[in-house]
Design a protein around this nucleic acid. Structure first.
Lengths: 185, 185
DNA sequence: TGGTTTCGCTACTTCAGGTTTCGATACCTA
DNA sequence: TAGGTATCGAAACCTGAAGTAGCGAAACCA
Protein backbone atom coordinates (compact mmCIF):
# COMPACT_ATOMS: atom_id res chain seq x y z
CA UNK A 1 0.00 0.00 0.00
CA UNK A 2 2.59 2.54 1.07
CA UNK A 3 5.34 3.81 -1.18
CA UNK A 4 8.82 2.44 -0.91
CA UNK A 5 12.22 3.83 -1.88
CA UNK A 6 13.92 2.17 -4.85
CA UNK A 7 16.72 -0.27 -4.42
CA UNK A 8 17.88 -3.83 -4.79
CA UNK A 9 15.20 -6.51 -4.91
CA UNK A 10 13.63 -7.80 -1.81
CA UNK A 11 13.01 -11.46 -1.31
CA UNK A 12 9.50 -12.78 -1.48
CA UNK A 13 8.23 -10.06 -3.76
CA UNK A 14 6.34 -12.61 -5.79
CA UNK A 15 4.28 -13.60 -2.79
CA UNK A 16 3.38 -9.99 -2.15
CA UNK A 17 2.31 -9.54 -5.77
CA UNK A 18 0.30 -12.76 -5.76
CA UNK A 19 -1.53 -11.78 -2.59
CA UNK A 20 -2.21 -8.32 -3.97
CA UNK A 21 -3.46 -9.85 -7.23
CA UNK A 22 -5.93 -12.17 -5.57
CA UNK A 23 -7.25 -9.58 -3.16
CA UNK A 24 -7.64 -7.01 -5.93
CA UNK A 25 -9.42 -9.46 -8.20
CA UNK A 26 -11.62 -10.50 -5.30
CA UNK A 27 -12.54 -6.90 -4.59
CA UNK A 28 -13.01 -5.50 -8.06
CA UNK A 29 -13.46 -8.48 -10.34
CA UNK A 30 -11.10 -9.56 -13.05
CA UNK A 31 -11.57 -6.87 -15.68
CA UNK A 32 -11.41 -3.99 -13.23
CA UNK A 33 -8.36 -5.42 -11.52
CA UNK A 34 -5.93 -3.47 -13.65
CA UNK A 35 -2.19 -3.88 -13.43
CA UNK A 36 -2.00 -0.39 -12.00
CA UNK A 37 -4.32 -1.31 -9.15
CA UNK A 38 -2.57 -4.59 -8.45
CA UNK A 39 0.76 -2.77 -8.31
CA UNK A 40 -0.70 -0.17 -5.99
CA UNK A 41 -2.12 -2.87 -3.73
CA UNK A 42 1.27 -4.56 -3.64
CA UNK A 43 3.01 -1.28 -2.89
CA UNK A 44 5.21 -1.47 -5.97
CA UNK A 45 5.40 0.20 -9.35
CA UNK A 46 3.61 -1.13 -12.41
CA UNK A 47 6.93 -1.30 -14.23
CA UNK A 48 8.20 -3.77 -11.67
CA UNK A 49 5.37 -6.13 -12.53
CA UNK A 50 6.08 -5.87 -16.25
CA UNK A 51 9.75 -6.58 -15.55
CA UNK A 52 8.81 -9.98 -14.09
CA UNK A 53 5.75 -10.95 -16.14
CA UNK A 54 5.31 -10.28 -19.84
CA UNK A 55 1.57 -9.69 -19.59
CA UNK A 56 -1.32 -9.50 -17.20
CA UNK A 57 -2.40 -12.97 -18.27
CA UNK A 58 0.98 -14.48 -17.45
CA UNK A 59 0.85 -12.86 -14.04
CA UNK A 60 -2.57 -14.33 -13.35
CA UNK A 61 -1.49 -17.79 -14.48
CA UNK A 62 1.56 -17.67 -12.21
CA UNK A 63 -0.66 -16.46 -9.42
CA UNK A 64 -3.06 -19.35 -9.95
CA UNK A 65 -0.21 -21.86 -10.09
CA UNK A 66 0.95 -20.52 -6.76
CA UNK A 67 -2.56 -20.59 -5.32
CA UNK A 68 -3.36 -24.10 -6.52
CA UNK A 69 -0.11 -25.78 -5.62
CA UNK A 70 0.37 -29.47 -6.39
CA UNK A 71 -2.76 -31.54 -6.82
CA UNK A 72 -3.21 -33.86 -3.86
CA UNK A 73 -3.84 -37.26 -5.36
CA UNK A 74 -4.57 -39.32 -2.30
CA UNK A 75 -7.02 -42.14 -2.01
CA UNK A 76 -7.19 -45.82 -2.48
CA UNK A 77 -9.40 -46.54 -5.46
CA UNK A 78 -10.04 -44.63 -8.64
CA UNK A 79 -13.36 -43.33 -7.33
CA UNK A 80 -11.72 -41.85 -4.26
CA UNK A 81 -9.00 -40.27 -6.37
CA UNK A 82 -11.50 -38.60 -8.67
CA UNK A 83 -13.72 -37.55 -5.82
CA UNK A 84 -10.83 -35.95 -3.95
CA UNK A 85 -9.68 -34.22 -7.14
CA UNK A 86 -13.13 -32.73 -7.65
CA UNK A 87 -13.42 -31.54 -4.08
CA UNK A 88 -9.93 -30.09 -4.27
CA UNK A 89 -10.68 -28.01 -7.36
CA UNK A 90 -14.01 -26.94 -5.87
CA UNK A 91 -12.28 -25.76 -2.71
CA UNK A 92 -9.58 -23.93 -4.63
CA UNK A 93 -12.00 -22.17 -6.93
CA UNK A 94 -14.00 -21.15 -3.89
CA UNK A 95 -11.07 -19.33 -2.31
CA UNK A 96 -11.38 -15.54 -2.41
CA UNK A 97 -10.25 -14.22 -5.75
CA UNK A 98 -9.11 -17.54 -7.15
CA UNK A 99 -12.34 -18.37 -8.92
CA UNK A 100 -12.70 -14.91 -10.36
CA UNK A 101 -9.10 -14.91 -11.53
CA UNK A 102 -9.49 -18.37 -13.04
CA UNK A 103 -12.65 -17.46 -14.89
CA UNK A 104 -11.06 -14.20 -15.98
CA UNK A 105 -7.94 -15.60 -17.60
CA UNK A 106 -9.95 -18.34 -19.15
CA UNK A 107 -12.15 -15.67 -20.63
CA UNK A 108 -9.29 -13.73 -22.10
CA UNK A 109 -7.82 -16.93 -23.48
CA UNK A 110 -10.85 -17.47 -25.67
CA UNK A 111 -9.69 -14.85 -28.14
CA UNK A 112 -5.98 -14.79 -27.30
CA UNK A 113 -4.15 -17.82 -28.68
CA UNK A 114 -0.91 -16.88 -26.93
CA UNK A 115 -2.61 -16.76 -23.57
CA UNK A 116 -4.45 -19.97 -24.36
CA UNK A 117 -1.12 -21.63 -24.97
CA UNK A 118 0.19 -20.41 -21.61
CA UNK A 119 -2.97 -21.50 -19.84
CA UNK A 120 -3.00 -24.92 -21.46
CA UNK A 121 0.68 -25.67 -21.02
CA UNK A 122 1.45 -24.23 -17.63
CA UNK A 123 -1.83 -24.65 -15.80
CA UNK A 124 -3.83 -27.49 -17.30
CA UNK A 125 -1.12 -29.88 -18.50
CA UNK A 126 0.53 -30.53 -15.12
CA UNK A 127 -2.77 -31.48 -13.57
CA UNK A 128 -3.86 -33.44 -16.59
CA UNK A 129 -0.66 -35.47 -16.57
CA UNK A 130 -0.84 -36.09 -12.85
CA UNK A 131 -4.42 -37.27 -13.21
CA UNK A 132 -3.56 -39.48 -16.15
CA UNK A 133 -0.86 -41.27 -14.21
CA UNK A 134 -2.89 -41.57 -11.05
CA UNK A 135 -6.05 -42.77 -12.71
CA UNK A 136 -4.54 -44.83 -15.47
CA UNK A 137 -6.91 -43.24 -17.95
CA UNK A 138 -6.10 -42.22 -21.52
CA UNK A 139 -5.54 -38.54 -22.25
CA UNK A 140 -8.87 -38.04 -23.99
CA UNK A 141 -10.85 -39.29 -21.00
CA UNK A 142 -8.93 -37.12 -18.56
CA UNK A 143 -9.44 -34.08 -20.79
CA UNK A 144 -13.15 -34.84 -20.85
CA UNK A 145 -13.13 -35.17 -17.07
CA UNK A 146 -11.48 -31.76 -16.74
CA UNK A 147 -13.87 -30.18 -19.23
CA UNK A 148 -16.89 -31.41 -17.30
CA UNK A 149 -15.69 -30.54 -13.82
CA UNK A 150 -13.95 -27.23 -14.47
CA UNK A 151 -16.36 -26.16 -17.18
CA UNK A 152 -19.40 -26.74 -15.01
CA UNK A 153 -17.90 -24.93 -12.03
CA UNK A 154 -16.77 -21.96 -14.12
CA UNK A 155 -20.10 -21.69 -15.90
CA UNK A 156 -21.91 -21.53 -12.58
CA UNK A 157 -19.48 -18.93 -11.26
CA UNK A 158 -19.67 -16.89 -14.43
CA UNK A 159 -23.46 -16.93 -14.45
CA UNK A 160 -24.16 -16.30 -10.79
CA UNK A 161 -20.96 -14.67 -9.61
CA UNK A 162 -20.73 -17.14 -6.76
CA UNK A 163 -19.24 -20.62 -6.42
CA UNK A 164 -21.42 -23.68 -6.70
CA UNK A 165 -23.40 -24.77 -3.66
CA UNK A 166 -22.62 -27.97 -1.83
CA UNK A 167 -25.70 -29.82 -3.07
CA UNK A 168 -24.79 -29.25 -6.71
CA UNK A 169 -21.18 -30.20 -6.04
CA UNK A 170 -22.45 -33.49 -4.66
CA UNK A 171 -24.58 -34.00 -7.75
CA UNK A 172 -21.65 -33.20 -10.02
CA UNK A 173 -19.38 -35.59 -8.16
CA UNK A 174 -21.91 -38.38 -8.29
CA UNK A 175 -22.59 -37.86 -11.98
CA UNK A 176 -18.93 -37.87 -12.94
CA UNK A 177 -18.07 -40.84 -10.76
CA UNK A 178 -20.87 -42.99 -12.08
CA UNK A 179 -19.94 -42.05 -15.63
CA UNK A 180 -16.31 -43.01 -15.19
CA UNK A 181 -17.21 -46.12 -13.26
CA UNK A 182 -18.33 -48.06 -16.31
CA UNK A 183 -15.89 -48.86 -19.10
CA UNK A 184 -18.24 -48.30 -21.98
CA UNK A 185 -16.94 -44.93 -23.08
CA UNK B 1 -18.36 -3.77 -47.11
CA UNK B 2 -18.79 -0.82 -49.44
CA UNK B 3 -19.66 2.67 -48.31
CA UNK B 4 -23.19 3.95 -48.54
CA UNK B 5 -24.74 7.41 -48.61
CA UNK B 6 -26.71 8.51 -45.53
CA UNK B 7 -30.44 8.52 -45.46
CA UNK B 8 -33.55 6.98 -44.02
CA UNK B 9 -33.31 3.51 -42.52
CA UNK B 10 -33.33 0.45 -44.63
CA UNK B 11 -35.27 -2.59 -43.59
CA UNK B 12 -33.46 -5.66 -42.41
CA UNK B 13 -30.45 -3.80 -41.14
CA UNK B 14 -30.33 -5.98 -38.06
CA UNK B 15 -29.79 -9.08 -40.15
CA UNK B 16 -26.91 -7.42 -41.95
CA UNK B 17 -25.32 -6.44 -38.64
CA UNK B 18 -25.83 -9.90 -37.17
CA UNK B 19 -24.24 -11.58 -40.16
CA UNK B 20 -21.34 -9.15 -40.08
CA UNK B 21 -20.91 -9.73 -36.35
CA UNK B 22 -20.72 -13.50 -36.64
CA UNK B 23 -18.39 -13.48 -39.61
CA UNK B 24 -16.10 -10.93 -37.98
CA UNK B 25 -16.00 -12.86 -34.71
CA UNK B 26 -15.37 -16.04 -36.67
CA UNK B 27 -12.46 -14.45 -38.51
CA UNK B 28 -10.75 -12.50 -35.78
CA UNK B 29 -12.01 -13.95 -32.52
CA UNK B 30 -14.15 -12.17 -29.99
CA UNK B 31 -11.71 -9.67 -28.52
CA UNK B 32 -10.29 -8.53 -31.85
CA UNK B 33 -13.75 -8.23 -33.37
CA UNK B 34 -14.08 -4.56 -32.50
CA UNK B 35 -17.23 -2.60 -33.07
CA UNK B 36 -15.39 -0.61 -35.70
CA UNK B 37 -14.57 -3.75 -37.65
CA UNK B 38 -18.08 -5.15 -37.32
CA UNK B 39 -19.50 -1.87 -38.59
CA UNK B 40 -17.07 -1.87 -41.49
CA UNK B 41 -18.01 -5.46 -42.35
CA UNK B 42 -21.68 -4.50 -42.29
CA UNK B 43 -21.01 -1.46 -44.44
CA UNK B 44 -22.40 0.95 -41.88
CA UNK B 45 -21.02 3.44 -39.41
CA UNK B 46 -20.10 2.57 -35.86
CA UNK B 47 -22.49 5.26 -34.69
CA UNK B 48 -25.38 3.37 -36.22
CA UNK B 49 -24.56 0.31 -34.16
CA UNK B 50 -24.41 2.30 -30.96
CA UNK B 51 -27.76 3.85 -31.81
CA UNK B 52 -29.36 0.42 -31.74
CA UNK B 53 -27.35 -1.39 -29.07
CA UNK B 54 -26.04 0.17 -25.88
CA UNK B 55 -22.86 -1.88 -25.83
CA UNK B 56 -20.87 -4.48 -27.66
CA UNK B 57 -22.09 -7.09 -25.22
CA UNK B 58 -25.73 -6.27 -25.86
CA UNK B 59 -25.13 -6.53 -29.60
CA UNK B 60 -23.56 -9.95 -29.20
CA UNK B 61 -26.41 -11.16 -27.01
CA UNK B 62 -28.98 -10.02 -29.57
CA UNK B 63 -26.93 -11.64 -32.27
CA UNK B 64 -26.86 -14.91 -30.35
CA UNK B 65 -30.59 -14.74 -29.69
CA UNK B 66 -31.10 -14.38 -33.42
CA UNK B 67 -28.67 -17.17 -34.20
CA UNK B 68 -30.14 -19.61 -31.69
CA UNK B 69 -33.79 -19.02 -32.34
CA UNK B 70 -36.37 -20.94 -30.35
CA UNK B 71 -35.24 -24.15 -28.73
CA UNK B 72 -36.80 -27.11 -30.54
CA UNK B 73 -38.26 -29.25 -27.80
CA UNK B 74 -39.42 -32.25 -29.72
CA UNK B 75 -39.40 -35.83 -28.58
CA UNK B 76 -41.56 -38.24 -26.77
CA UNK B 77 -39.91 -39.01 -23.46
CA UNK B 78 -37.76 -36.96 -21.16
CA UNK B 79 -34.61 -38.66 -22.36
CA UNK B 80 -35.34 -37.75 -25.96
CA UNK B 81 -36.10 -34.18 -25.00
CA UNK B 82 -32.82 -33.79 -23.15
CA UNK B 83 -30.87 -35.53 -25.86
CA UNK B 84 -32.29 -33.32 -28.57
CA UNK B 85 -31.64 -30.23 -26.45
CA UNK B 86 -27.99 -31.22 -26.06
CA UNK B 87 -27.52 -31.91 -29.74
CA UNK B 88 -29.22 -28.66 -30.60
CA UNK B 89 -26.90 -26.57 -28.43
CA UNK B 90 -23.90 -28.50 -29.74
CA UNK B 91 -24.91 -27.78 -33.30
CA UNK B 92 -25.54 -24.12 -32.59
CA UNK B 93 -22.24 -23.62 -30.81
CA UNK B 94 -20.51 -25.32 -33.69
CA UNK B 95 -21.77 -22.81 -36.23
CA UNK B 96 -19.12 -20.40 -37.50
CA UNK B 97 -18.68 -17.54 -35.08
CA UNK B 98 -21.48 -18.56 -32.74
CA UNK B 99 -19.30 -20.52 -30.36
CA UNK B 100 -16.63 -17.83 -30.27
CA UNK B 101 -19.23 -15.13 -29.70
CA UNK B 102 -20.89 -17.15 -26.98
CA UNK B 103 -17.65 -17.86 -25.16
CA UNK B 104 -16.65 -14.24 -25.59
CA UNK B 105 -19.70 -12.60 -24.03
CA UNK B 106 -19.67 -15.16 -21.32
CA UNK B 107 -16.09 -14.18 -20.62
CA UNK B 108 -16.86 -10.52 -20.42
CA UNK B 109 -19.82 -11.25 -18.18
CA UNK B 110 -17.56 -12.75 -15.55
CA UNK B 111 -16.44 -9.33 -14.40
CA UNK B 112 -19.32 -7.25 -15.72
CA UNK B 113 -22.45 -7.62 -13.56
CA UNK B 114 -24.56 -5.59 -15.97
CA UNK B 115 -23.66 -7.82 -18.89
CA UNK B 116 -24.17 -10.86 -16.71
CA UNK B 117 -27.67 -9.67 -16.01
CA UNK B 118 -28.38 -9.27 -19.71
CA UNK B 119 -26.91 -12.66 -20.49
CA UNK B 120 -28.82 -14.39 -17.73
CA UNK B 121 -32.16 -12.73 -18.36
CA UNK B 122 -32.33 -12.53 -22.11
CA UNK B 123 -30.34 -15.56 -23.20
CA UNK B 124 -30.41 -18.19 -20.49
CA UNK B 125 -33.80 -17.66 -18.87
CA UNK B 126 -35.96 -18.32 -21.94
CA UNK B 127 -34.27 -21.63 -22.55
CA UNK B 128 -34.25 -22.51 -18.88
CA UNK B 129 -37.98 -21.88 -18.59
CA UNK B 130 -38.76 -23.79 -21.75
CA UNK B 131 -36.73 -26.71 -20.50
CA UNK B 132 -38.36 -26.57 -17.09
CA UNK B 133 -41.82 -26.81 -18.56
CA UNK B 134 -40.92 -29.47 -21.08
CA UNK B 135 -39.03 -31.65 -18.66
CA UNK B 136 -41.10 -31.04 -15.58
CA UNK B 137 -37.94 -30.56 -13.56
CA UNK B 138 -37.41 -28.01 -10.78
CA UNK B 139 -35.39 -24.90 -11.56
CA UNK B 140 -32.30 -26.01 -9.69
CA UNK B 141 -32.03 -29.22 -11.67
CA UNK B 142 -32.44 -27.45 -15.00
CA UNK B 143 -29.82 -24.88 -14.03
CA UNK B 144 -27.48 -27.72 -13.17
CA UNK B 145 -28.22 -29.32 -16.52
CA UNK B 146 -27.37 -26.10 -18.32
CA UNK B 147 -24.20 -25.62 -16.30
CA UNK B 148 -22.95 -29.07 -17.18
CA UNK B 149 -23.80 -29.04 -20.87
CA UNK B 150 -22.93 -25.47 -21.76
CA UNK B 151 -20.02 -25.24 -19.33
CA UNK B 152 -18.40 -28.37 -20.68
CA UNK B 153 -18.81 -27.30 -24.29
CA UNK B 154 -17.50 -23.81 -23.65
CA UNK B 155 -14.54 -25.08 -21.66
CA UNK B 156 -13.55 -27.33 -24.49
CA UNK B 157 -13.94 -24.52 -27.02
CA UNK B 158 -12.01 -22.09 -24.86
CA UNK B 159 -9.17 -24.51 -24.28
CA UNK B 160 -8.75 -25.88 -27.79
CA UNK B 161 -10.33 -23.20 -29.92
CA UNK B 162 -12.48 -25.79 -31.64
CA UNK B 163 -15.86 -27.34 -30.87
CA UNK B 164 -16.11 -30.68 -29.15
CA UNK B 165 -15.72 -33.81 -31.25
CA UNK B 166 -18.61 -36.19 -31.82
CA UNK B 167 -17.26 -38.92 -29.56
CA UNK B 168 -17.07 -36.60 -26.58
CA UNK B 169 -20.51 -35.21 -27.33
CA UNK B 170 -21.81 -38.75 -27.18
CA UNK B 171 -20.10 -39.30 -23.86
CA UNK B 172 -21.49 -36.04 -22.52
CA UNK B 173 -25.00 -36.92 -23.63
CA UNK B 174 -24.84 -40.37 -22.09
CA UNK B 175 -23.47 -39.07 -18.83
CA UNK B 176 -26.12 -36.39 -18.45
CA UNK B 177 -28.97 -38.68 -19.46
CA UNK B 178 -28.02 -41.42 -17.04
CA UNK B 179 -27.62 -38.85 -14.28
CA UNK B 180 -31.06 -37.39 -14.83
CA UNK B 181 -32.62 -40.80 -15.30
CA UNK B 182 -32.58 -41.65 -11.63
CA UNK B 183 -34.53 -39.60 -9.13
CA UNK B 184 -32.00 -39.62 -6.34
CA UNK B 185 -30.71 -36.08 -6.77
C1' DT C 1 34.84 1.80 -2.92
C1' DG C 2 33.00 1.12 -7.30
C1' DG C 3 30.15 -1.46 -10.39
C1' DT C 4 25.95 -3.98 -11.13
C1' DT C 5 21.39 -5.04 -10.38
C1' DT C 6 16.94 -3.89 -9.49
C1' DC C 7 13.64 -0.75 -8.18
C1' DG C 8 10.35 3.64 -8.28
C1' DC C 9 8.66 7.31 -10.92
C1' DT C 10 7.02 9.85 -14.74
C1' DA C 11 5.76 10.15 -19.18
C1' DC C 12 4.54 8.10 -23.27
C1' DT C 13 2.27 5.15 -27.07
C1' DT C 14 -1.44 2.37 -28.69
C1' DC C 15 -5.91 0.74 -29.01
C1' DA C 16 -10.74 -0.21 -28.09
C1' DG C 17 -15.20 1.13 -26.11
C1' DG C 18 -18.23 4.62 -26.16
C1' DT C 19 -19.98 9.69 -27.00
C1' DT C 20 -20.87 13.86 -29.44
C1' DT C 21 -21.73 16.79 -33.26
C1' DC C 22 -23.08 17.98 -37.70
C1' DG C 23 -24.34 17.56 -42.37
C1' DA C 24 -26.83 14.81 -45.74
C1' DT C 25 -30.63 12.11 -47.34
C1' DA C 26 -34.75 9.38 -47.74
C1' DC C 27 -39.41 8.72 -46.14
C1' DC C 28 -43.96 10.61 -44.72
C1' DT C 29 -47.61 13.80 -44.67
C1' DA C 30 -50.07 17.66 -46.10
C1' DT D 1 -44.89 19.12 -54.68
C1' DA D 2 -43.02 21.11 -50.49
C1' DG D 3 -41.64 20.77 -45.83
C1' DG D 4 -40.74 18.32 -41.56
C1' DT D 5 -38.76 14.39 -39.36
C1' DA D 6 -36.32 10.35 -38.62
C1' DT D 7 -32.31 8.16 -39.51
C1' DC D 8 -27.84 7.53 -41.40
C1' DG D 9 -22.52 8.50 -42.28
C1' DA D 10 -18.37 10.68 -41.08
C1' DA D 11 -15.08 12.38 -38.16
C1' DA D 12 -13.47 14.14 -34.07
C1' DC D 13 -13.23 13.32 -29.35
C1' DC D 14 -12.95 11.26 -24.34
C1' DT D 15 -11.78 7.65 -21.16
C1' DG D 16 -9.38 3.90 -19.41
C1' DA D 17 -6.17 0.16 -19.59
C1' DA D 18 -2.14 -2.55 -21.57
C1' DG D 19 2.41 -2.18 -22.30
C1' DT D 20 7.08 0.60 -23.09
C1' DA D 21 11.12 3.82 -22.32
C1' DG D 22 14.33 6.40 -19.76
C1' DC D 23 16.34 8.20 -15.75
C1' DG D 24 17.73 8.59 -11.03
C1' DA D 25 18.23 6.22 -6.55
C1' DA D 26 19.37 2.70 -3.53
C1' DA D 27 21.01 -1.82 -2.06
C1' DC D 28 23.92 -5.78 -2.74
C1' DC D 29 28.52 -7.80 -4.14
C1' DA D 30 33.27 -8.10 -5.07
Amino acid sequence: MTSRPPGRPRTGLNDVVFAATLSTVHELGYARATVDRIAAAAGIAKTTIYRRWPSKGALIVDCLLDAFGPVPLEGAGRAELMSSAIHWIVAKIGEPGVGDAFAGVFSDAVSDPALREILSTRLQDPYRIALQEALGEPEARVLFFIDVVVGTLLHRMGMTGEPMAAADVTALTGMVLSHFADDTA
